[in-house]
Design a protein around this nucleic acid. Structure first.
Ligand SMILES: [Zn+2]
Length: 293
DNA sequence: CGGACCACCTGTACGC
DNA sequence: TGCGTACAGGTGGTCC
């Protein structure tokens, strides 16, 4: 469940062990999710990891320019997205290899950075130093950094459903299905409300809810669903604090009504029918994602 | 612009 | 036990 808090948890773990170390070789398993597998083996060895950053749900390993003719292209970034089931962490070679581990970046001290991803919805790509700013600008604002006025401006006049906009990574980067539902529950806004119909009090509440929930989730090292663990292998705790997500039929923590599940923006969406009243003449929300033929 | 639906891939839970 | 179905943290495409 890598959304912003889980990715931040992974990044904080990697930041304590990776900077200063050099990639000496690369081994790959399945590569259908890697943009240019050959380029990894060709361009990474010899580069030192300088910084570890998070851009929304992306992990950025900033690498040195290295030396030698083939490194004449300057700084490089190894950019990794965890998709639905990705994991990234450092292990020793003798440590057991988790199933579905598809990339090993061997370090000069013998340890290896491993990428594991059951469904392979993640991404591994190289972004040249000169293209990194453009890459970052294609994404929206960090939800923990955006000002109130910019938050309002980005949603003003949009006639899409608020949840669809929260999930749009070009508006805000890092919010996913769990934290969208949790934030909307906290702010008492139905996920199918149109953004343009939210007043400024609604928007102010929503921004505060997003900040509070993401911050608390980071403190709890994210939500662990189906075995998510951080870079050290420890699970998160925030799933115990979910108020809406995954709680269909259970009582609302505020009013006791049964939490309902519907489909908004193509995703399962959990909300309290009483605290989060449905938009008046909105098209009836579909019940749940339908099976495909 | 916005939404519905499909695709990518693997695993798990559950009904029969 | 086995099989079919629904669903899962995400993104990106098509079609209307
Ligand atoms: Zn309620």
């Amino acid at each position: 469940m890598p959304e912003l808090p889980e990715v931040e948890t992974i990044v904080r773990g990697l930041r304590t062990v990776l900077p200063g170390h050099t990639i000496v070789s690369v081994r790959l398993g399945k590569t259908d999710f890697i943009e240019d597998p050959a380029a990894l083996a060709e361009l990474l060895p010899g580069r030192r990891i300088e910084r570890v950053e998070r851009l929304g749900k992306f992990i950025q390993l900033q690498l040195s320019a290295g030396s030698g003719a083939k490194h004449a292209d300057g700084q490089m970034n190894l950019v990794i997205h965890l998709g639905m089931t990705g994991w990234l962490g450092v292990r020793r070679p003798e440590d057991p290899v988790a199933p579905h581990t598809h990339a090993f970046f061997e370090l000069e001290d013998g340890r290896e950075l491993r990428y594991t991803d059951i469904r392979r919805f993640g991404q591994i790509r190289l972004v040249h130093g000169g293209n990194m700013a453009a890459f970052s600008e294609r994404l929206g604002k960090e939800p923990l950094e955006i000002s109130a006025s910019e938050f309002h401006a980005r949603l003003a006049g949009r006639r899409a459903r608020i949840k669809a906009l929260l999930l749009d990574q070009s508006i805000f980067r890092g919010i996913g299905n769990i934290y969208a539902d949790e934030s909307l529950w906290q702010a008492r806004i139905h996920p199918a409300r149109l953004a343009a119909r939210l007043n400024s009090a609604d928007l102010a509440r929503l921004r505060k809810a997003i900040r509070r929930i993401l911050q608390h989730a980071i403190e709890d090292r994210g939500s662990s669903i189906s075995n998510f663990v951080d870079a050290e292998g420890q699970p998160g705790e925030y799933q115990q604090r979910h108020r809406a997500y995954g709680r269909e039929g259970k009582p609302c923590f505020r009013c006791g009504s049964k939490i309902r599940r519907g489909s908004v923006a193509g995703r399962s969406s959990y909300f309290c029918p009483r605290c989060q009243p449905a938009p008046r003449r909105a098209r009836a929300m579909r019940n749940a994602p339908k099976p495909r033929g």
